[in-house]
Design a protein around this nucleic acid. Structure first.
Length: 124
DNA sequence: CAATTGACTTGAT
DNA sequence: TATCAAGCCAATT
């Protein structure tokens, strides 16, 4: 497998790039898909730097949310994330502005085979 | 090489 | 239902 050479962060980015428009993934699920079940914080660390460099500029970072089905970024970043998600059809709770509605229904659930293919592609 | 950091998660209270 | 603390992991200092 070519993904052996990819850093953990790069594998996170490779996966996030393939989240379909209007679908979501959580930090913890991303970690699990990368065979690091308890690595949710590491995914958070990776996402924190997303969008700041040329290589991460194109990833749909807004599609990564917390396991509680809510935006976990802060301040103006959270505002932008919400705006981007609403633009692709994701709806929010009026009572709780950062809470995503129909969360479980729009979670992306790629098969292990699909994940493997994605990582293989990114490794080339 | 040890300590620190962070866009997390979960179980206990 | 809402808090809180402890555990966990990779990258950075």
């Amino acid at each position: 497998m070519t993904d052996d050479l990819l850093s953990f962060n790069d594998r996170v980015y490779a996966l996030v790039r393939r989240i379909p428009r209007g679908k979501l993934l959580t930090y913890g699920r991303i970690a699990a898909l990368l065979d690091t079940p308890r690595g949710a914080r590491a995914v958070g660390w990776a996402m924190h730097g997303a969008g700041t460099s040329p290589v991460t500029a194109d990833i749909p970072w807004q599609r990564v949310v917390s396991s509680a089905g809510r935006i976990s970024t802060k301040h103006h970043i959270a505002e932008e994330q919400k705006r981007l998600l609403q633009a692709e059809g994701v709806r929010f709770d009026r009572r709780d502005p950062l809470k995503i509605l129909r969360f479980s229904a729009i979670l992306w659930t790629p098969s292990p085979l699909e994940v493997a293919a994605i990582l293989a592609d990114s490794g080339q």
